[in-house]
Design a binder for these strands. Structure first.
Lengths: 250, 250
DNA sequence: GACCCGCCTTGATCTGCATCAAGGCAGAAT
DNA sequence: ATTCTGCCTTGATGCAGATCAAGGCGGGTC
């Protein structure tokens, strides 16, 4: 396998045969708005990259030259204040389309939480291609609308929920998204939730500190709401109680 | 003028002659993506409504049957917790398009801060019309992208900024949006900022309490950063200092 | 003009979460 | 096997902002 280092990311020469056709992420992604026979045009634009865990592949403020599609692994999206305070605005699992923005620079940074594979498109070229595929543009609007709804929910969490409610919301949402079968956001709540991110990431996502996250989780454990077999695994023991906590009922 | 009460909103029979053509909000709105000769098709779908200050015209959780366009006045958009805690997720000034959502129910409520005029469209009919006007769909995607960026900025504010930084951010953003000339979001910072919303609204927008908002503003005053000629008017005396406060520099 | 009613300001006190501090633990390197 | 290192947990203390409480102020009504 040939690797070429470009801007500190590993670029693989796009396999000529089945670049998009055999993509694991396609069923979860905006790409599936384009049908089989047109997919090659999209594939021609895509560069497949590998991103190692911990690597920042979008730098806030950099010129926004690319769109990305997460094909494996998870990224965290974040904004920073000059003194280092960080707000993680979301996690981007497989299938997530990144880089929607009208501005010419990225409004947020992105860093791999786990080893990732991403698909990279030239913003300029994709824009031209979108004119030919209104179905994909429609899909993008849907995606953006959904993210807007999620963002509003997160504002409610950050502005008005207690630490307990935030953690409960986080776990419940994760459980819904990790659900059995489909990886990104199925609809049956999972028993076991895997947390690929660190406590620090969770804290920065929920507007708390590491210590509060840790304490709150251990308190949930003593209250028999969850089990914590390992730091990155949570078992939901009382889903109903967590859900009502998440919605603000005590 | 004929008024017809419908679902506790005042509906005016759409003036047959110039419903959209002479609309004040059009230059600021997604409608301007549709050119002059097609605007009548849009106008045929629109109902022009008057909303009195304080009236809720979108109820969170209600079936989402309509899209709205704010043609005059300002609305607050909010989410509630069962015990009454409220997060205002944004203010919608003239030109704002409301109701983007894939779900069949509204994800947020909307209430008039000032007397408003809004343009109401059937979701179903507008969706059909959008297929004929890809330019408008593009515009919607742009709008949604911009709101997503704003939402991320607000998450940073809610999750990581201090009360002083939140108020400073709020004032600076308002100043940019109230700027001279164009009402919604010009690009020169205004000297005087008008706040049509109450302290309670500001508090619920910034994730604070009324008291903290009030105290912080009076402290800004004693520090000569602002003047407060009346409760709903703020004069920016030291814009630079407020801006650096807003970005987290002390 | 007097009263009322919302809204805003200001002061006193409380508290949930942050901060400071000290290990514990598990996987990686040697 | 031992040490190291990064991450996590737990405890003690502090503080920003919430809560509780008491007027002030301005605009509307009678």
């Amino acid at each position: 396998m040939t690797h070429i280092r470009v801007r500190s990311l590993v670029v693989e020469s796009a396999r000529p045969s089945e670049p998009c056709a055999a993509c694991d992420a396609r069923p979860f992604s905006v790409c599936n708005a384009i049908d089989q026979r047109d997919i090659e045009r999209l594939a021609a634009l895509a560069a497949s990259l590998t991103v190692e865990a911990g690597r920042t592949f979008i730098e806030e403020g950099d010129p926004a030259e690319h769109f990305f599609n997460v094909t494996a692994g998870t990224a965290k999206l974040f904004k920073l204040l000059p003194d280092g305070r960080r707000q993680i605005t979301g996690f981007a699992p497989m299938g997530t389309f990144l880089g929607l923005a009208v501005s010419s620079t990225y409004a947020f940074g992105a860093e791999a939480v786990e080893p990732m594979r991403i698909c990279r498109f030239s913003r300029f070229k994709l824009r031209a291609l979108l004119d030919d595929f209104p179905a994909m543009e429609k899909r993008l609007l849907e995606v953006a609308s959904n993210e807007l709804v999620a963002a509003q929910e997160q504002m409610l969490l950050l502005g008005r929920k207690t630490a307990r409610e935030r953690l409960a919301s986080f776990l419940v949402t994760r459980a819904a998204c990790t659900a059995n079968g489909a990886t990104p956001c199925g609809h049956r709540a999972a028993e076991k939730v895997t947390l690929p991110m660190t406590r620090s990431d969770i804290a920065d996502y929920l507007g708390l500190t590491i210590e509060t996250v840790s304490r709150t989780l251990t308190r949930f454990k003593t209250e028999r709401l969850i089990d914590i077999p390992s730091a990155s695994e949570i078992v939901m023991r009382d889903h109903a109680a967590l859900e009502s906590l998440a919605t603000g009922l005590h």
